[in-house]
Design a protein around this nucleic acid. Structure first.
Lengths: 342, 342
DNA sequence: TTGTATGCGTTATCAG
DNA sequence: CTGATAACGCATACAA
């Protein structure tokens, strides 16, 4: 701030009272004459006084700021989550400091360090793909620092997590493909160290078993990057090399699903007649492509909002660690479009 | 922070030296014995000392935090901009406080107020659609507070702005449609109070004139919300009611372009054979829809990065207001895909 | 009803 | 080479 901010000192001097009087008057403390209150408030208004939040933070050891650590901003799902976070934080008077890790563990670590140095009151975290040990967070947790994990969460005790129901989303998607008569369903999975990937794969596998089919481990193919290009290449390879060709693809995310769709088309296969495809996330473009893409929709905004509410409740001690159900799971919904109906 | 943070006091007590010595030792100030330096640093490391950024801010009247005010996070273009901002800010040791206005002027005003109260060192702003007067910012500018406007910028003197070349992007898009033989090109424009909308409309009009055609004002139709639904409705109406039917649509944004495409298809028109379509922004889905959508690509990441660099240079007085070219304009690029080639 | 003094964590200034 | 002190802006315990 090179802005010459007005302080309570300025007001005090002007009015020939002490700074404590000004401070109390502004906050409607009892034991200040109405006359003084009026004068102080009037002048404060007139001088456009704004309390210095930094000084307040130092005094109260509270910054009214929460940190958000996210793998990538440019990602439809995460941007909806951020939107939900920002909405709730703003409504409850908190600032949001944002950093993206670009999927790098080092950045995750340095981000949390800077944020702590900035005295954030709590933090919302979604892991990078590189993160496999959680020491940098479990240390904080052990000290009672408020952390809420969302979407990509660690598998440690006592961690409060907010996720979507990946398992049932995947289960429903696979079940839907089976019901449409697809029999050789391949799964384009995500990085296997992420719990969401594991859960989605598990939902896929269980749906097969539940309907009397024997899952073939070879039909789960990992797409690490999750881009359409990658999935396109991998799908093309599958279609070429597998002795038993898949007749459907359930992808871990929509980009991968699009990649699979493009590869199928390129191989002369018709979607949905020859090959069924279902994605995950319900990105905006699902309804815009041809054929429109069936997808499991995740409530990103609600997820962000819910995670923030829990975090703020924790910070304000409205709830205690452990009092809350440790893991909140939000419903997913399968949106059936053309790519999987025949 | 309910974290019991280690302070220089703790280190000083432990080592039986004064806090000033610790402070100086940690910063490698001259005039401290190597022995003391070593001991202090060692202990600091061991105790996991982290400087309190809040106290520093208060002391230095600098927070090393910049604010970002943006209409909407859930918007591909803006999310790329945020990514660019975050990247540069992080690299130069700044925090990013983010708020979205949801296109509301009141939130824009209250956001800037909170941020100032939090002693941000500067702010990056893209206006809400409701913003028509700029007093809440020009006041600050007049006081020399560092502000850089991006994408949606005000039309006031002395404001530093970073934008993309909307005019030439629109010009090229329209020219391309003309070259492809489309003759009755309609323009689905954005809110007319936004400069970007005006510039794109101007580029469209000028391209027509430049190629010897007379622009028909009735062929510029405002799509305020910029959603595909809205554009779909409006396009359907145009196709029904206009006596001279357009044979091409140049849309202010990609969502609107998709809406137009859907409406055309619904009306039994073939794209690109009967109707050509070009969008603006080059969202991810452009290459995924059928036919793939030609679009003017905007360098969102670079825009965010550039704006942040200028802002930080301004804050750090590496440049003076006025020394920099007041308006930086980044190149756009027309990406020709199938929707506009026949 | 109001004022004085103190401290939040840090660093700059001045002394020693 | 090191220490004591004041100050950043504010809130509050204690005095008056």
């Amino acid at each position: 701030m090179r802005l010459e901010q007005i302080t309570i000192k300025d007001i005090a001097r002007e009015l020939n009272v002490s700074t404590s009087t000004v401070s109390r008057a502004l906050k409607d403390y009892p034991g200040i004459s109405d006359e003084t209150k009026r004068k102080v408030k009037e002048l404060a208004e007139k001088m456009d006084y704004r309390p210095n939040a930094i000084a307040l933070s130092l005094r109260k050891s509270r910054s009214f700021t929460i940190g958000v650590i996210i793998p990538e901003v440019v990602h439809f799902f995460f941007s909806t989550v951020i939107s939900g976070i920002e909405e709730v934080a703003f409504a409850r008077g908190y600032n949001v400091i944002l950093t993206q890790t670009n999927e790098k563990l080092v950045r995750e670590k340095s981000s949390i360090a800077t944020m702590l140095s900035n005295q954030i009151d709590g933090v919302l975290v979604s892991f990078s793909k590189e993160t496999t040990d959680f020491e940098h967070f479990s240390n904080l947790l052990a000290k009672g620092f408020p952390i809420v994990f969302f979407d990509r969460v660690p598998d440690i005790d006592n961690a409060i997590t907010v996720t979507v129901d990946d398992y049932s989303g995947a289960f429903e998607a696979t079940k839907h493909l089976l019901q449409q008569g697809y029999r050789r369903i391949a799964h384009l999975s995500g990085p296997s160290n992420l719990k969401i990937s594991q859960e989605r794969a598990r939902g896929y596998t269980d749906a097969l078993i539940h309907h009397g089919f024997t899952p073939d481990p070879g039909f789960i193919v990992e797409c690490n990057k999750g881009t359409d290009d990658e999935a396109q290449k991998i799908t093309a390879e599958i279609l070429e090399t597998f002795s038993t060709k898949p007749d459907a693809f359930f992808a871990n995310n929509d980009m991968a699903a699009v990649g699979a769709m493009l590869a199928c088309k390129a191989a002369g296969l018709r979607v949905p007649e020859d090959v069924g495809i279902v994605g995950f996330s319900n990105w905006q473009f699902c309804s815009m492509i041809d054929p429109s893409l069936s997808s499991v929709s995740q409530p990103g905004f609600n997820l962000g909002a819910k995670a923030t509410e829990i975090l703020l409740d924790l910070i304000e001690k409205k709830i205690q660690l452990g009092e809350y159900s440790n893991s909140v799971v939000l419903e997913t919904e399968l949106l059936i479009r053309k790519s999987s109906v025949r």
